[in-house]
Simulated assay, not measured.
Amino acid sequence: MAGQAPTIQVPTDAELLQAQADLWRHSLYYLTSMGLRCAIKLGIPTAIHNFGGVTSLPDLMAALSLPASKQPFLGRLMRVLVTSGVFAAGGDNSHSEAEAELFRLNPLSRILVDGVVADEHHSQTSFVLAATSPFYTEAALGLADWFRKDIAGPVPSPFEDVHGASLFHESTALLDQELDELVTEGLAAHDNLGIGTIMRECHDLFKGLESLTDCCGGDGTTARAITKAHPHVKCTVLDLPKVIDKAPSDGIVNYVAGDLFHSVPKSQAVMLKLVLHHWSDEDCVKILAQCKKAIPSREEGGKVMVIDIVVDSSSGPTHEAELLMDVAMMVMTNGRQRDETDWSEIFTKAGFNDYKLVKKLGARGVFEVYP
Rank of each mutant, 00 (worst) to 15 (best):
residue 3 G to F: 12
residue 6 P to R: 13
residue 17 L to F: 13
residue 20 Q to E: 14
residue 30 Y to H: 14
residue 40 I to D: 01
residue 58 P to M: 09
residue 61 M to R: 15
residue 63 A to E: 13
residue 64 L to I: 06
residue 69 S to I: 08
residue 72 P to R: 02
residue 77 L to G: 03
residue 92 D to H: 11
residue 96 S to W: 08
residue 103 F to N: 05
residue 105 L to K: 02
residue 111 I to S: 12
residue 113 V to K: 06
residue 126 S to K: 08
residue 132 T to C: 14
residue 138 E to C: 11
residue 145 D to S: 12
residue 152 A to F: 06
residue 152 A to H: 09
residue 157 S to A: 15
residue 171 S to H: 09
residue 173 A to N: 07
residue 173 A to C: 08
residue 175 L to N: 11
residue 181 E to L: 14
residue 184 T to A: 15
residue 188 A to F: 07
residue 190 H to G: 07
residue 195 I to V: 13
residue 195 I to Q: 06
residue 201 E to Q: 15
residue 205 L to H: 00
residue 208 G to S: 06
residue 211 S to P: 04
residue 213 T to G: 02
residue 214 D to N: 09
residue 219 D to E: 11
residue 220 G to V: 03
residue 224 R to V: 05
residue 227 T to Q: 11
residue 230 H to L: 04
residue 230 H to K: 10
residue 231 P to G: 10
residue 232 H to E: 15
residue 238 L to K: 00
residue 240 L to P: 00
residue 243 V to I: 15
residue 246 K to V: 04
residue 250 D to G: 13
residue 254 N to S: 13
residue 259 D to V: 05
residue 263 S to R: 06
residue 266 K to I: 01
residue 266 K to H: 11
residue 266 K to F: 02
residue 271 M to V: 07
residue 272 L to K: 05
residue 282 E to R: 13
residue 292 K to F: 06
residue 297 S to W: 00
residue 298 R to C: 02
residue 298 R to S: 10
residue 302 G to N: 01
residue 303 K to N: 01
residue 304 V to W: 04
residue 304 V to T: 11
residue 307 I to K: 05
residue 311 V to F: 00
residue 311 V to T: 12
residue 315 S to R: 12
residue 320 E to P: 00
residue 324 L to R: 13
residue 324 L to G: 08
residue 324 L to T: 12
residue 342 D to H: 13
residue 354 D to E: 13
residue 354 D to C: 03
